[in-house]
Amino acid sequence: MYHPNWAFAASGGRMGGRSFSSSSSSSSSRTYSVPRTSGPSPGFSFSAPYYGPSPFGGVYVGPAVGVGVGAGSSFFFILVGFLAFVLVSGFLSDRSEGSVLTAADKTTVLKLQVGLLGMGRTLQRDLNRIAEVADTSTPEGLNYVLTETTLALLRHPDYCISAYSSVDIKRGIEDGEKRFNQLSIEERGKFDEETLVNVNNIKRQSTRSQRTNGFSNEYIVITILAAAEGVHKLPSINGSGELKEALQKLGSIPSSKLLAVEVLWTPQNENDTLSERELLEDYPLLRPL
């Protein structure tokens, strides 16, 4: 007999970690100083030589005459207003390359999702092994999770049948963290239960009974989420070549730039099944390679 709830049940694995708070505090502690000019009063001054007729013929060049412009003059306020306008315009024009907010100040949130044939159970074992040994509380451990996952996929291209990528470039770390959390919650909600977890080095494994519906595993879906300082790109995936390029780009992000990594996969247990209907309903953005 086929139980109707089996179609909506799927074990899920999740591993990774985040370091948004530490990066945000170090960023906010930076201070910037504005040079001050010496002088008795604000404003600026300039001097120009005096030209006049010489009693002996020709032109007489006299001593420089100082002309001061005080802070209360209309010209000074016009200048200050113009500078303020330029500054505000720079902040508002964040979309341009020459804006005040540089590429280093931005945070990129990347998502790569891969659909695989269910016969690729070696990938499930690889991900289980990575989750069991990784120290996800350190930047090096997060880098290990990211590189080992991308390598596992690169080693089994024949199992990959569909994929999807997205890139969100945010103004700062807080916006990046918000987007990363949103994507994580969205993906986790597709699992019936997280049966293997290693997040920030907090590990948990479920001993729930496995499904015994008699069907072989049809598909596997692996989702990689990453947040990194600066601007990073992934290609739009229309074939195996773009998938390979996307995996290489993800795996080569320096650990010093990583703010968060999360790898989610379903089914986590080899005895569970992800049917074609579940694949289409829960992962509609996947496109055939």
Rank of each mutant, 00 (worst) to 15 (best):
1 M>L: 14
1 M>K: 13
2 Y>I: 09
4 P>N: 13
5 N>D: 14
5 N>R: 05
8 F>W: 12
12 G>L: 06
12 G>M: 09
14 R>Y: 09
15 M>H: 07
15 M>I: 10
18 R>E: 12
24 S>Y: 05
24 S>Q: 08
24 S>C: 04
31 T>V: 14
31 T>S: 15
32 Y>W: 04
32 Y>H: 04
44 F>A: 14
44 F>K: 04
46 F>V: 06
46 F>H: 11
50 Y>T: 15
51 Y>M: 09
56 F>N: 13
57 G>W: 06
63 P>H: 13
66 G>Q: 12
69 V>P: 03
70 G>T: 07
71 A>N: 10
72 G>K: 12
76 F>N: 09
77 F>R: 15
82 F>A: 15
84 A>T: 14
87 L>S: 02
89 S>R: 04
90 G>F: 06
90 G>W: 05
94 D>E: 10
106 K>P: 11
118 G>T: 05
118 G>P: 08
123 L>N: 01
123 L>P: 03
123 L>M: 07
124 Q>G: 13
127 L>H: 01
127 L>W: 01
131 A>W: 00
132 E>C: 06
132 E>I: 08
135 D>F: 03
136 T>H: 05
139 P>E: 07
142 L>C: 12
142 L>Y: 12
143 N>D: 11
144 Y>D: 14
147 T>H: 05
148 E>W: 06
158 D>P: 02
158 D>T: 02
158 D>S: 10
159 Y>T: 10
163 A>L: 03
165 S>M: 10
169 I>E: 13
177 E>Y: 03
179 R>H: 12
179 R>D: 10
185 I>L: 15
186 E>S: 12
187 E>Q: 04
187 E>H: 04
188 R>Y: 09
191 F>D: 00
192 D>P: 02
196 L>N: 09
197 V>D: 02
198 N>Q: 09
198 N>M: 02
199 V>R: 02
204 R>P: 01
206 S>Y: 01
213 N>G: 15
214 G>S: 06
217 N>P: 08
218 E>M: 03
220 I>P: 01
229 E>P: 07
230 G>E: 01
233 K>M: 05
234 L>K: 05
235 P>K: 09
239 G>I: 11
239 G>Y: 11
240 S>C: 08
241 G>F: 04
242 E>G: 11
244 K>T: 14
246 A>C: 13
247 L>K: 04
247 L>F: 07
248 Q>V: 15
249 K>C: 09
250 L>R: 00
252 S>P: 01
260 A>Y: 05
261 V>D: 02
262 E>P: 06
264 L>P: 00
264 L>V: 04
266 T>K: 03
268 Q>F: 12
269 N>L: 14
269 N>K: 13
270 E>N: 07
275 S>M: 05
282 D>W: 05
283 Y>N: 05
283 Y>G: 03
284 P>M: 06
285 L>Y: 10
289 L>Q: 04
